[in-house]
């Protein structure tokens, strides 16, 4: 049995090894880009079914972001929404026989976690300035600076391991069960895997949003948001 922790290198472009996960990611990207290009081709003032569906997706995303952060969703919509859509499609790509979800590989999840870390810095600096971003480490007081710095690393590591563990374990368990009894038996596990994939994608997006908004709020010079945060 192959180790779930190792990746299969298909071929190399120069010094760059192209793994199966990267290839599948490209496929997912192509599907998403072409699909969205086709879906948003004719946006009319009066929506038809197709437009109503994609508008429902966008509106739901906006609602979630607004409920999580309490601010306007426009700056975060693209990043958080794409994160959610990509993880969801990647998780569910295990339904296609022969494909392994890219998110069941360490590299992809690590890359996503790194992106979240970078985006926290990016949005923190953009929303509150460099000083504001650095000040956000001193919330709620100066003594918390080492802990906050450590937390900013560990929380993305936690996200990374959570996503990887969940998706990988689902794939792994289904692989084991399928090797024992290939017919019909893995179906409930696959259904559970679908649910897990959806919930993990949601959790990943929401956690990224929470981290970003917490950093932006803590970085604000006005102490009012942090005071408000303490109330509940």
């Amino acid at each position: 049995m192959n180790s779930p922790l190792s990746s299969i290198i298909l071929f190399q472009i120069g010094p760059v090894p192209i793994t199966q996960a990267v290839l599948i990611t490209w496929g997912i990207m192509a599907v998403l880009v072409i699909g969205s290009a086709l879906l948003t081709r004719h946006l009319a003032l009066v929506p038809d079914k197709r437009q109503a569906m994609i508008e429902l997706i966008v509106t739901t995303m906006d609602t979630q972001i607004r409920e999580t952060t309490g601010t306007e969703p426009a700056p975060y919509r693209s990043f958080i929404g794409t994160l959610f859509l990509f993880i969801l499609v990647a998780n569910w790509s295990s339904l296609i026989p022969g494909l392994e979800p890219p998110t069941s590989k360490l590299e992809t999840d690590a890359a996503l976690a790194v992106l979240v870390f970078v985006s926290v810095v990016w949005f923190g600096v953009r929303g509150a300035g460099v000083g504001g971003y650095l000040r956000s480490f001193a919330a709620p007081n100066v003594a918390m600076i080492p802990l906050n710095m450590l937390e900013s690393i560990t929380r993305v590591f936690s996200m990374f391991v959570r996503l990887f563990g969940n998706v990988m374990s689902g794939v792994f368990v289904i692989g084991i069960v399928a090797s024992l009894a290939g017919l019909l038996v893995p179906i409930p596990l696959m259904a559970l895997d679908l649910l897990t994939g959806l919930v993990q994608a949601y959790i990943f997006a929401v956690l990224a949003m929470v981290f970003i908004s917490a950093t932006v709020e803590d970085g604000q010079p006005d102490p009012a948001p942090s005071l408000q945060k303490k109330v509940p």
């Binding site: 180790s3 779930p4 922790l5 190792s6 391991v161 990887f164 897990t196 919930v199 993990q200 959790i203």
Partner: peptide
């Protein structure tokens, strides 16, 4: 509840990852 269950489940997943590390890597 689903989100909370997923978070809780993560603890078990951590253990699974540790076990896999011990077994495969």
């Amino acid at each position: 509840l689903f989100v909370g269950l997923a978070m809780i489940e993560t603890t078990a997943i951590y253990c699974l990852v540790i076990a896999l590390l011990l077994l495969f890597a």
